[in-house]
Design a protein around this nucleic acid. Structure first.
Lengths: 116, 116
DNA sequence: CTGAACTACAACCATAAGGTTGTACGTTAG
DNA sequence: CTAACGTACAACCTTATGGTTGTAGTTCAG
């Protein structure tokens, strides 16, 4: 059993990064096309440094990557991290379905009673 | 001075709730079957009150619901909130695909022009 | 060359988050 | 009835988070 956990799992970071509306918006824009940090920053009611921090959070989560182009830093969304989070959610849905299967009879009974 | 607006969106709460491994585990167990809070608490290396707080976070996010049974409080997972988060992720993936499509067109154009 | 534009990063602040312990109260077992 | 169980919640502590301002290094335009 591997007990040596890192301080924060990658999945933790991804979900945490997505828990902020500004960051989700940045992900949306970065998935559609590349934007410099300052271009992103212009559209939010906060300082450039604040947006820079949001981008850093997204970068640590692997949701975006940065690439230099001259004096700009181009931010681009990375879909793999999104898929990783998606996998977690689908596993939860799978669990739910298997639970439904196991209690299918009971559910059927309840439904029948409910509609009587 | 302290303007406590109802600030946090439901989606914010869901993603934040899922950003903690203990809470994700509680969701897993609660989707599989019902458990009392203390039954859940026994399996984590923290106090009962801490687990209680985690459950509260999940409840505020709509990921679980609680139902009294005698002196116990049964925690049960709610798949709807999971699906809501899943929708957000799928929209991101859709954006990514549409970007690829548009990029494909550009590529086609460039290629066409380049080969003329 | 010089200044403006982008970025990086440190210092600071207020509040949220995640944990603890302690107390209180309803419910059930004996 | 009484003791134990399950829960709720308050008070407290420490660290993380999200914002600010300020300083400084690079790169580009003129």
């Amino acid at each position: 059993m591997v007990v040596v956990q890192e301080r924060q799992d990658r999945v933790d970071r991804i979900f945490h990064a997505l828990s902020d509306p500004t960051r989700r918006d940045i992900v949306v824009r970065s998935l559609v096309g590349e934007h410099s940090v300052s271009a992103l920053a212009r559209d939010y009611p906060m300082s450039f440094a604040a947006v820079q921090k949001h981008v850093a959070v997204l970068e640590r989560a692997g949701l975006v990557t940065k690439q230099r182009r001259g004096r700009e830093q181009l931010v681009r969304g990375d879909i793999d991290a999104v898929r990783e989070a998606d996998l977690v959610l689908r596993r939860l849905e799978d669990l739910w379905h298997s639970r439904l299967d196991r209690f299918g009879e009971v559910l059927a009974d309840v439904t029948r009673e409910g509609t009587t």
